[in-house]
Design a protein around this nucleic acid. Structure first.
Length: 288
DNA sequence: CACTTGACCTGTCCGC
DNA sequence: TGCGGACAGGTCAAGT
């Protein structure tokens, strides 16, 4: 569920909260969630301080002063939550979605010297946190294959359309979800942007016109920028670095709104399966 | 190579 | 109340 806007929201929170903090101790459970050896953790994490928090696509990178990086993918149910002096510093306590930590979903706990803790929680264990030298991160298979960042200032609608030519015979929704085409798009913002561009998700890529690609490019950027502004979408259990919900779902036009009316034409929103995912459209505004 | 499907997990919800 | 099954969705391996 965490897509580009949610991961970016976590990045901004962590960037504000943990840079400069020094690691006192690390504990973790399964190799699946954290595959590195205790020796590596002791050598390159304990005693290190956080120097930067970066994002590429849906992947977070916590850079350490040892020139090692904790690379994190939240997949569907991952959370990175800091508990410490600043946790209740802002916002309303009712915004919080997490109880006391650690809990049964906690996979990794990083204790900082100042007494705060960073928890990596992941109910379904699809996510992971990996330690590797910072200069090796760009050489990960994922990093080499992933497409361009859709919100970068120099990313044009021409480049956007050109990325899809390789996937001419698949559906536009499957292509949007393909991380090697465009980085960071997931199920929520695929549905929202396709609604905004009046494109049916099952349309084949080669039938999409240049004007429609232009429209989709614009809608995708509008929707993702709005979602970042709203702190992301909390559909199930996404929370930011302070354990708080995002509010984009209050602004969603079709996602998870089956049976409600289309904000554009008033028709009833329907749900079906496309590209293997639950898919929401207005059957009047979006036709095959 | 392009494309689709199933596997990875756990919790929740729905019908019986 | 319990119980089985569908569903949630990001990515990769394995299939056609």
């Amino acid at each position: 569920m965490p897509e580009l806007p949610e991961v970016e929201t976590v990045r901004r929170g962590l960037h504000r909260l943990i840079i400069g903090r020094s690691v006192a101790r690390v504990s973790h459970d399964t190799p699946k969630s954290f595959p590195n050896s205790p020796q590596d953790v002791h050598s390159f994490v304990v005693g290190a301080s956080v120097t930067d928090v970066r994002r590429r696509a849906k992947v977070l990178m916590i850079d350490l002063s040892t020139l090692y990086t904790l690379v994190v993918h939240l997949k569907m149910t991952g959370q990175l939550v800091l508990v410490g002096q600043t946790r209740f510093g802002a916002g309303h306590p009712n915004d919080s979605l997490v109880g006391s930590l650690p809990d049964k979903s906690t996979r990794v706990t990083i204790d900082f010297v100042d007494g705060s803790q960073l928890y990596f929680n992941d109910q379904r264990k699809f996510g992971w946190m990996k330690l590797m030298p910072t200069d090796e991160v760009p050489h990960m298979t994922f990093m080499k294959k992933v497409g361009p960042e859709p919100l970068e200032a120099d990313f044009t609608s021409w480049q956007f359309a050109a990325r899809f030519t390789r996937r001419a015979k698949t559906s536009i929704k499957a292509a949007l979800l393909d991380q090697t085409v465009i980085a960071g798009v997931g199920n929520i913002y695929a549905d929202e942007s396709l609604w905004g561009a009046h494109i049916h998700p099952k349309r084949l890529v080669h039938t999409i016109t240049a004007a429609e690609f232009q429209h989709l490019y614009t809608e995708l950027r509008i929707v993702m920028n709005l979602a970042i502004d709203k702190g992301g979408s909390t559909n199930q259990n996404y929370v930011n670095a302070e354990g708080k919900r995002g509010s984009y779902m209050d602004f969603a036009r079709v996602f998870r709104r089956e049976g409600l009316t289309c904000p554009h034409c008033g028709a009833e929103i329907i749900k079906f399966k496309a590209a293997g995912r639950g898919t929401h459209i207005c059957p009047v505004c979006q036709v095959v």
